[in-house]
Write a protein that binds this DNA or RNA. Structure first.
Length: 322
DNA sequence: ATGGGTACGATTATTACGTCA
DNA sequence: ATTGACGTAATAATCGTACCC
């Protein structure tokens, strides 16, 4: 698909895009395209997930070797985390000019993970006594390997728990983490949003939970973060789209005016068919035709030249064939 | 090739809370 | 003011799958 376009004013048109952000770039891509047929606006976007922080931040970790191993694993996996980024077909200069959020330095505001609500309101009612309700989380199916493993591991955390005799057959109720537990997990999550096995076990011991529960909590926490970030990204792209739409309208109007000028001016009448082009960097409209003398000449006769490949601007309403 | 470990997405089930009659 | 039904949001947990070692 040919990138149809326009584009605009690099003078703070997208002031909202200037918020600092820290979403890491993500190389993998799936393609989603947003277009507005009414106005001939066509924006190619690749929507990926928010690109997990996969913060490899060091932690008060076990052995250096373990940590290394784990980090390498995370790095290897990092290629399929999500994020939003521009399609590779989009000219880099455009990306730069537009302050597109998926460019690392121009990224949309990242969900402030650490500042997210520390504990769910629900947790108010729970307390550490629930730690010992471990036997009861309301899911009957639990015969997978992980739970088997946990059965072994949790014996430690249950050591102090007297009411686990009736475990078999008892319907498990869903655990609600206490405020303190949630807060602790949140703190931990701020430091590193993934856990290596030793960290997991240590955390579980500290909180008197099973390692599996800690693991699940982290998984869910990452999912929540991602969801939040996706919402933020969506909102951001919506604004971006609106802004580009406005810009496109403005440019279409400009093109219309120029065409009117062209038809009314004898000077233009004598020229061969001309294609209007726009410099994506300086955003000036230029005419280009088979005659070298007129190509790459800015309408305003300024001396600057185009900085990057020109993107043709179709006269009239853009009917972009994809 | 295979198994173990982990992450993720999608989904389910439970809990807490708000609203309303 | 109280209460029970109902809807909803949050979230703990499960399942299936993909990936790496």
């Amino acid at each position: 698909m040919e990138p149809a376009l326009y584009l605009g004013d690099n003078t703070n048109k997208f002031s909202f895009l200037e918020k600092p952000s820290k979403i890491p770039n993500n190389p993998s891509a799936s393609s989603t395209s947003t277009s507005d047929k009414n106005i001939g606006f066509n924006m190619g976007l690749d929507v990926l997930g928010f690109g997990s922080q996969r913060s490899l931040s060091s932690s008060s970790s076990p052995s250096v070797e373990d940590e290394k191993k784990y980090k390498s694993k995370l790095t290897q996996r990092a290629n399929y985390s999500d994020g939003v980024r521009v399609s590779s077909s989009v000219d880099p200069s455009l990306q730069l000019q537009l302050h597109l959020p998926w460019i690392p330095e121009n990224r949309a505001p990242t969900v402030a993970e650490p500042s997210m609500p520390v504990s769910p309101p629900d947790s108010v009612t729970s307390s550490f006594r629930l730690d010992f309700g471990i036997k009861s989380y309301g899911y009957e199916k639990r015969n997978n390997k992980r739970d088997m493993e946990d059965e072994v591991e949790k014996s430690t955390s249950r050591a102090s728990n007297e009411d686990n005799d009736d475990e078999n057959g008892a319907i498990r109720k869903k655990l609600r983490l206490s405020k303190d537990q949630s807060a602790f997990l949140e703190d931990s999550f701020k430091e590193h949003n993934t856990l290596n096995p030793k960290q997991k076990i240590a955390l579980a011991k500290q909180l008197n939970l099973r390692p599996r529960q800690v693991e699940v909590w982290f998984q869910n926490r990452r999912a929540r973060t991602k969801l939040k970030q996706t919402e933020v990204d969506c909102e951001y792209l919506k604004k971006c789209c609106e802004s580009l739409t406005d810009e496109n309208r403005r440019l279409q109007k400009e093109v219309k005016e120029l065409r009117a000028l062209k038809t009314s001016s004898p000077f233009y009448m004598q020229r061969p068919a001309t294609t209007l082009t726009m410099c994506p960097s300086c955003e000036r409209v230029a005419t280009s035709s088979s005659q070298p003398s007129t190509s790459a000449a800015h309408i305003d006769l300024s001396t600057s030249s185009f900085h990057s490949p020109l993107i043709p601007v179709k006269p009239g309403p853009a009917k972009q064939a994809s």
